[in-house]
Design a protein around this nucleic acid. Sequence first.
DNA 1: TCTGGCACTCTGTGTTCCCGAGTGCCAAGT
DNA 2: ACTTGGCACTCGGGAACACAGAGTGCCAGA
Lengths: 337, 337
Amino acid sequence: MLDDRKLAVLRAIVEDYVSTNEPVGSKALADRHNLGVSPATIRNDMAALEEQGYIAQPHTSAGRVPTDKGYRLFVDRLSQIKPLSSAERRAIETFLAGAVDLDEIVMRTVRLLAQLTRQVAVVQYPSLTRSSVRHVEIVPLSDRRVMLVLITNTGRVEQRVVDLPEDVADDRIANLRGVLNGCLDGCGLSNVPDTIADLPERLPQEDRQVAATILSVLLETLVERHEEKIAFGGTANLAGADFSVGLRGVLEALEEQVVLIRLLGETHGMSELTVRIGSENPYSGLRGTSIVAAGYGSGDRELARLGVLGPTRMDYPVTMGAVRAVARYVGQILAGS
Amino acid sequence: MLDDRKLAVLRAIVEDYVSTNEPVGSKALADRHNLGVSPATIRNDMAALEEQGYIAQPHTSAGRVPTDKGYRLFVDRLSQIKPLSSAERRAIETFLAGAVDLDEIVMRTVRLLAQLTRQVAVVQYPSLTRSSVRHVEIVPLSDRRVMLVLITNTGRVEQRVVDLPEDVADDRIANLRGVLNGCLDGCGLSNVPDTIADLPERLPQEDRQVAATILSVLLETLVERHEEKIAFGGTANLAGADFSVGLRGVLEALEEQVVLIRLLGETHGMSELTVRIGSENPYSGLRGTSIVAAGYGSGDRELARLGVLGPTRMDYPVTMGAVRAVARYVGQILAGS
DNA sequence: TCTGGCACTCTGTGTTCCCGAGTGCCAAGT
DNA sequence: ACTTGGCACTCGGGAACACAGAGTGCCAGA
């Protein structure tokens, strides 16, 4: 059905189209790649490839352009992920090394990815549920108000103001903080609900009401929107490339966190690259755009995902290499802090 | 030099051009606005206005278009800030009311501004130096590491990991925390350096080294990049409008925090609107874009600024009204939390 | 199965042409 | 001293058109 030469032709078409951004014809193919056959033969192969939906012509008598299906085959079987140059590796290390807190790590990662790939970069904050508690702090603000601060082992800090049902003296707060840290320290966040379920019962009667209030806010913090926080950047890279749909749709999608998170995809295992090409995306505003994403994490746990978004006509081998490399480095950085 | 009618003509030109996005000619003006004079007269006035640089024609024998100078005059003397409709007011209140922490307030403000004005919204986080300390927390992470958490009265939370020069037991940390909070509580951040300058000397000899390390990180946190953190959104609104320079420049400027901060401008006093039109901007990538900004704060202190960025050809009265209203509401929200 | 040749089909580009909107100026009117 | 109608002039932008060039499909021959 698809012999080796046809595959070679497809690969050549993708490569040429990616670099020139113009439909590629049989003659140009024969010239630029030494396939060892004449344009006429290539034409026959192209006809076959088109027949099966891997390439298409914008209009009769123009060159061919890869379809989403064609890119898919290219990514799956015809391309090899391109490793970064050593200069790029060093750039990554030095660029990420100076970050002082999680916010900065994420911000720098975004910039880094955007610069390396010349695409839009998207980075998800380390997922709360997959982290564990490093410390819980309860800060009295006034007699009836406290601020609850949750610090995770990935460096993420969540805070919430809690209105208490009654006046509470500072020493009772201090006591509660001690108890809370005692049983939550190191606890995986997904286990927190179970762990604290019966905690009020172990406290003196007078404190139960207050503890319950604080704990319910803590639970809220865990499940709510904070769960999936993301950052993106490099939108200026969109200006050059033209999208079939126009970049309005892309920009809208980027500002829609929910969409963006779904785009990064579900977990597939560490450093496993996910590539979504054009119409494979679950969001119609992104016709004509592809996503290359990977999970990152410290040790063997995937904490969250990151990736880039660009036109389907992108250099997949290079992009995939950059995404994979950055994901690994970020994992290391996180593990080390 | 510029009699009333000429000013009326300029106002009409700006209004028409803003709404139609096409150069406006003398005939159209005479038709749409009842100026009570003939097109020929208007032509004379237009010639005078052009002579003095308030309007220009894209090419000979096209209609006139306002210049930056023309917009400036319009904003300063010919327009009245348009108050929001009551529906919009209510929308603002309900939209901002549900925010649980500072991050969310800022995020929602960005969305709100972007939606109201259909432009790009930019919001600066409440300045650290103009806030005061609500609480300082020192969380032991390991024997030689602590996390320093600084909470301000505006709800902002800054955290930093500190590597200590020696092993330090938890009780010494607790002690240090007590001392630190004792002297910093309620202290204006700009006074912190003075306040803690002689603090190590008041501690037992053994703790001085550790305290100095922690304090120096605290000082860093105050002066560093965190000082001016900003968020923006609504870039999808750029897609429609066309900029003379192309929107690449605009997107680049948006990602350049430094530039953005300078664009929001210096403090001019609370709720004072700053309008920067086209070439008045200190950044060349923004030829063709205007900025409308205002300060916001709680009480009488300006904490930071917010604003929108759009094509010079924007509806200034409406935009200014929205920016001013949002700035006020955000101030209220911050004061209340 | 590959190849060269050939006729055919488009798109994109350049040219020309013309319409219309808009201007500037002038002379006449109030 | 303004204002106004008239008029000639200027361009930009769109429509019509032709044309070169790239690319295709198909066929007959190696």
